[in-house]
Simulated assay, not measured.
Amino acid sequence: MSGTKKESHWIPLADLMTVLMVIFLFMSISYMALVEKRQKEQNKIFKDYEESKIALYNELNQAFKNDFAKWDLKLDNDLSIKFTNPQVLFGTGSSDITSHFQTILVDFLPKYLSVVLQEKYKDKIAEIRIEGHTDTKPIGLSGDPYIDNMKLSQDRGRNVLAFLRTQKCFINLQPTEKERLQYWLTANGLSYGRAVDKNYKISFDTKQPIDNDKSRRVEFRIVTTSEAIINEALKNIDNK
């Protein structure tokens, strides 16, 4: 009799264990499916990021292949185009665009816009930054050369953007294109925070001496939508 009671006591427990194992199995399968889905989404983002960068790089390289030496342009893998001759950009300590640089921009801007405003890049570009960079030489009287140069670099970036808006290549755009470009464009000043070495590499990264002549430059840099998503994901990881 006691054996019968003992057996009837363990049967429900065995059933419970079976149910729990089935639930755990379904949870494991669901979790694995979720992980696989997220991995596929991440892979798609990275693939899209690389494909967009390569396509834009190739088209920019093709558009300006005859101008790099003529205008002292440098195209980097981060989709930045650098104007690297400080003598033709601005006067020393000035944010006024020289007549020589204006002549260059008149030819440069239509070619640049013809690449970035293609319909196929409409959802691939998140931002186009016009960046002003200075050397490390002190200017002004504030006592903080970094801040003085920050204002100078911001004024230079802003003046290049203002000049763009006066050109036919901008004025004659379709309203939707003009709206898109205005959404993308920003003017940024970075003072000498990203001064470069003799090889145009960021001196802070390479630990090589700063080349003041090469550091005085203006850059047009494209940020792709995939790059923005990746940066936001990394930011969220850092905040956890």
Rank of each mutant, 00 (worst) to 15 (best):
D76E: 10
F64E: 00
K40S: 13
L73Y: 11
D48M: 04
K37W: 07
K124G: 03
L117I: 03
E119D: 14
V115R: 03
K65N: 13
K37C: 03
L34K: 14
K44D: 09
I97C: 06
F68Q: 05
D67N: 14
N61W: 03
F90V: 09
A33L: 13
E51K: 14
F90W: 10
S114A: 14
V116Y: 09
L56S: 03
T92G: 05
T84W: 01
T84S: 00
L75K: 04
Y57P: 01
T92I: 11
I81F: 00
T92L: 08
L73A: 06
D107Y: 10
A33Q: 14
K111Q: 15
V35R: 12
K122E: 09
F64M: 06
K65L: 02
E51M: 11
S99T: 02
G91A: 02
T103E: 15
P86G: 02
P110S: 04
V115G: 08
F90G: 10
F90H: 13
A69N: 12
D96H: 06
H100Y: 07
L34I: 12
W71C: 04
T84D: 02
E51Q: 14
E50M: 15
E59Y: 02
Q87I: 08
I125H: 04
D76S: 15
F83P: 07
L105E: 02
K122Q: 12
K40T: 10
D78S: 03
N85T: 07
A126Y: 13
W71E: 06
I104E: 10
F64L: 05
S114N: 14
Q39M: 01
I45S: 04
E119T: 14
L79M: 12
N77Y: 11
L73N: 06
D76N: 13
S95E: 06
F108K: 09
V115T: 04
F108A: 08
I45P: 09
W71V: 01
T98S: 12
N43G: 08
